[in-house]
Amino acid sequence: MTTGEVNTAGGSSSRVPGRPHQEVAFVARGAYVGAVQAYRDAGFEMCADLCAVDYLLLGDRQVAEGVDPERFEVVVNLLSLSQRRRVRVRVQVPESDPSVPTLFDVYPGVEAMEREVFDLFGIVFEGHPDLTRILMPEDWEGHPLRKDYGVGRVPVQFKEAPGPR
């Protein structure tokens, strides 16, 4: 793994003063599921959101100390109802191997969200039970939210219609 050291409690964590509920934790890809599981055990009952960002155009961006930025980033928003607290887990995913393990076994609610990220970014969630496209047609080419997927570049595609019976 290329990212920095992570303690099992959830990686490097920071709070931004003046902005409530913006706690961020960077974890390495290898420690990702373990860290999220640790958060779950610490009282984060719900995975509110899971999305990804393609940082292709921001090569020299600043991330936390000890974290090597990669092209993709999977962002998981965890929510603790009992502590009224949010934490945002950010995982760097390299372009050469765009895959992360699935969180399905920790939070079954990420099923649709991981499918959406797979559909729009092409990030593979290993172990996901039903990793298929969800918003785009299944015969669509490319992953639209990637930054190298031009807007208006691809002609309109239609799913092949069945012929008359």
Partner: peptide
């Protein structure tokens, strides 16, 4: 819960705008 995840690169357009739609998740 309607969420908005915004990433800004310092320009006048969002670098990434993600909306966490409650209906999308609730359908599960």
């Amino acid at each position: 819960e309607l969420g908005c995840y915004l990433v800004s690169d310092g320009s006048s357009k969002p670098y990434r705008m993600h909306i966490r739609g409650p209906s999308f998740v609730n359908l599960q």
